[in-house]
Write a protein that binds this DNA or RNA. Structure first.
Ligand SMILES: [Mn+2]
Ligand SMILES: [Mn+2]
Ligand SMILES: [Zn+2]
Ligand SMILES: [Zn+2]
Lengths: 139, 139
DNA sequence: ATTATATTGCAACGTGGTTGCATTTGTCAA
DNA sequence: TTGACAAATGCAACCACGTTGCAATATAAT
């Protein structure tokens, strides 16, 4: 599964760095929750592949541009990223510890809401729905 | 309208500062869109009541705690605040210029969505729905 | 092995926001 | 009116998250 991603990148003339490959591995084995740059850096470190923070940020930007990961706005001040699986979904996040969880949604009813809004001057291209609350531990 | 807010604060033992009164005025006369700390500071300056940035941030925290304003997460890196009018609503925001607009919603269909989610470990207390797109000027 | 250039590390910078502490100001009671 | 006490303020320094310029390094094609 990683191989297709890697091959696609290589075919576009990008290099398959040690860190790049590892980051993709991390995202693939981490379907649970979106992670931040700091968390990713920590995971790299844990995998004996330390990388400079600048590199981590640049790599996240790169993978976003390449459509391999997507940015997830969790409402706290930090960007998070998750693998760009297809399938629309929403997120729940803890107001105390900022834990984030993905919520798959069978048929998103927000398209009608969108219609109501699109009539205005804004041209709507997407939406983000976050549920706030307290996770099990923080309750 | 401002008088009730001010009286309530005074009754709780808080002081009616020049800046505090002006900020409340600004929020009351600004039903349009949520504003950031920097924007608020600029408006104060324009009203001949310059205030230190620390004071502005502290006052926004204070008014949030007092339930007079509410934080609006617009997805760009900065907090915004709006008057805590009752009545649930959502927001649209421009991906280019970060303009934010409030969208009133007659009957928010998200309560069912919430049910589906609340069954999990998270205890949901609220949600935030943002529509992303391009405003008229930025299209 | 050589080469071209994609990637990296470092240090410095930027923005949004916070904190400790000394000073000022609002409020109330004498 | 005048103190006095606590709330609010200004300042400077700090913090987290993220970005940028540039020189050094690593990948991969020849
Ligand atoms: Mn997700
Ligand atoms: Mn609003
Ligand atoms: Zn939690
Ligand atoms: Zn715009």
């Amino acid at each position: 599964m990683a191989h297709q991603i890697l091959k696609a990148l290589k075919d576009k003339g990008f290099r398959l760095t040690k860190v790049r490959k590892l980051i993709i591995e991390i995202f693939l084995s981490n379907s649970a929750a979106p992670i931040s740059a700091v968390e990713l850096k920590a995971r790299l470190m844990a995998a004996d592949a330390d990388a400079n923070k600048t590199t981590v940020y640049r790599e996240l930007d790169f993978l976003s541009e390449q459509g391999i990961v997507v940015e997830v706005n969790a409402g706290d001040g930090k960007k998070r990223y998750e693998l760009n699986r297809d399938g629309h979904h929403h997120h729940i996040l803890c107001l105390r510890c900022s834990a984030v969880e993905c919520v798959t949604v069978d048929n998103c009813t927000l398209q009608e809401e969108l219609k109501r809004v699109d009539s205005k001057s804004f041209k709507i291209t997407g939406h983000s729905l976050n549920f706030f609350g307290l996770c099990e531990e923080c309750q």
